[in-house]
């Protein structure tokens, strides 16, 4: 099959940096305002009040978080708001030492998927972990939301600063 592999022209980063080949650059300047929608707008309003809420499905009885106005499994409208706990269980986590654009971080970020108490099993949300030694993180760890002070909350998922280990 070797004869059916085309010998494309490889450029080194120097070829571009030093202008040895011609190229154009363009920034699309794409700015978006994404609507939160019906379910997530309500979800975030409750963040301001320091509460997590989900939605329940009348057919499969799952309590869903993040909340949604329809159950993607039963494809029917969800029918009730359910107040959840602001505690949960770490389903998985990472220690990330690099930003998306490849800048090295001094302190690792600790993103996690956290199964929220009061929602159905496996219903997790992505958030950050804090007030914990990165090396002490473990799957199955119990955690609680650390809310920003009420006057600093804006109706954003960042109204929870992070989740920290729960001492039970």
């Amino acid at each position: 099959m070797d004869e059916f592999v085309y010998d494309s022209v490889y450029l080194s980063s120097r070829d571009l940096r030093e202008g040895r080949v011609l190229f154009e650059t363009w920034q699309p300047n794409a700015q978006y305002a994404w609507d939160a929608g019906v379910a997530i707008s309500r979800y975030l309003q409750e963040f301001k009040a320091g509460k997590l809420i989900g939605r329940s499905c009348p057919e499969c009885s799952r309590v869903l978080v993040p909340p949604r106005m329809f159950c993607e499994s039963c494809f029917c409208p969800t029918d009730d708001w359910v107040t959840l706990e602001d505690t949960g269980t770490v389903l998985t986590f990472s220690r990330c030492t690099i930003t998306w654009d490849l800048v090295q971080l001094e302190e690792p970020q600790m993103p996690a998927v956290i199964e929220i108490d009061g929602a159905s099993p496996g219903m997790g949300i992505m958030h950050m972990l804090g007030e914990v030694d990165p090396e002490a993180l473990a799957i199955g760890m119990r955690v609680r939301a650390v809310w920003k002070p009420a006057d600093e909350r804006t109706g954003s998922v960042t109204d929870i600063a992070y989740f920290k280990p729960l001492k039970e």
Binding site: F23, W26, Q31, S41
Partner: peptide, 13 residues
């Protein structure tokens, strides 16, 4: 609510 954001890309052609 809405959330503002961008797609911080630059195309190099």
């Amino acid at each position: 609510l809405n959330w503002h954001g961008d797609m911080p890309t630059e195309g190099r052609y």
